[in-house]
Computed example of a mutant assay.
Amino acid sequence: MRYSSFTRRYADYWAEGVWNIAFELEGVEPSASFRLTVAALPPEAAAADYLSLSEQAEYARFQYPRRRCSYLLGKLSAKLALAGEADDLSAIAIEHGIMNQPVVSGSSRKITVTHCDSLGAALAFDQRLLAGVDIELISEQARDALRRITSVEEERLSSGPQQDMGQTAFLTLLWTAKEAMSKVLLTGFTVATELFEVKTLERRKYGVVGRFCNFPQFLSLSVLREEYIFSMVLPAKAFAPGEEDRLLERIHNSLPQLPAGLYANGLK
């Protein structure tokens, strides 16, 4: 099904369950573009309209609801981020590289994908860029595990402007920044997490900007919601002066609260 037809057929879902941000980074010449798509869990009946036949066969093999949900969230958000108005969603093939990273078949565009609970997000970006995204629920049950992979130096960062966000949210923010950085390198957490240690966090009006000890060439941009934290990592040199604040504002104003229970026609 074409992108434009999908938006019309599932108009209610599109209006309440899909959020798009297109942005131009002016720090490079010519400017580098990306599109961020965040999608809530789609109706299961819609899967045949955007999955290819091989993807439908793969999806049918999954037995557990959690895996079925994550598959649909990842595929749909990636295809929506990549597609133009006239593109057939089922013809966009998202394959996997040697490190299980998403690869767009037959395209120079790149993609990075994340999902949690009932939200998926994908960033489609110019091949000149490097980028990673992550979204994580703020869970008190995960706090002890997150603290174990947080360095003493990182713990000290919580005493700055971040002290009002709460300990669990702070630890989750660090995790999302690190995971997004690991996706930039295409390694994921197959390497020591200490490699991704966060050096500084700076609270801005609409989010938090971070820098890394071992990767000073990159910035992390994080936006907080009551239930989750979203982070993306991009090259610092891609930003024109003040551009990270404009991007944080766009993301802050676009990201939804977690749509728990909102899409009863989705998977259970």
Rank of each mutant, 00 (worst) to 15 (best):
F218P: 02
R204L: 11
L173T: 14
V198I: 13
N214G: 07
R203G: 09
K199I: 00
F230W: 04
S222V: 14
T190G: 03
L186H: 10
A169V: 04
Q217A: 06
A177E: 00
K178S: 05
E179V: 08
S220W: 01
A169L: 04
G188S: 06
A180C: 10
T176H: 04
E244D: 15
I229Q: 12
L221E: 10
G188H: 08
S220E: 01
F196E: 04
T187M: 00
E179C: 05
T193I: 09
A192H: 01
T168G: 11
F230K: 05
R211Y: 06
M181P: 02
L224E: 12
L201P: 09
V184Y: 02
L248Y: 09
L186N: 09
D245N: 15
F212E: 02
V198G: 07
L234T: 01
F170C: 12
S220Y: 02
K199C: 04
D245Y: 00
T168K: 09
K183Y: 06
F239H: 07
R225C: 11
E194M: 00
L219C: 13
E226R: 15
R246C: 13
E179W: 12
P241S: 15
L185M: 09
T190C: 04
V198R: 03
K237A: 10
W175S: 10
R211F: 08
W175I: 06
Q217P: 00
W175L: 11
V233C: 03
A238W: 01
L171D: 14
L171Q: 13
E194A: 07
A192R: 05
L219M: 13
L174R: 00
A236K: 05
R204W: 12
K178N: 03
W175V: 08
S231E: 08
V209K: 03
R246Q: 13
T172Q: 08
E202Q: 14
T168S: 14
A240Q: 04
E179S: 05
S231Q: 09
E194S: 09
F189G: 03
N214F: 00
M232I: 10
P241A: 14
L185W: 04
Q217V: 01
V223Q: 09
A169E: 13
C213K: 00
Y206L: 08
R225E: 10
A169G: 14
P216N: 04
L248D: 10
E202N: 13
C213G: 02
V184N: 00
L234R: 00
N214I: 00
M181G: 00
E202R: 14
P235F: 02
V223Y: 03
M232T: 11
C213D: 01
Y206G: 04
T193V: 12
V184F: 04
L219V: 10
A169W: 04
C213H: 02
G210N: 10
F215L: 04
L186A: 11
V208A: 10
F196I: 02
Y206E: 08
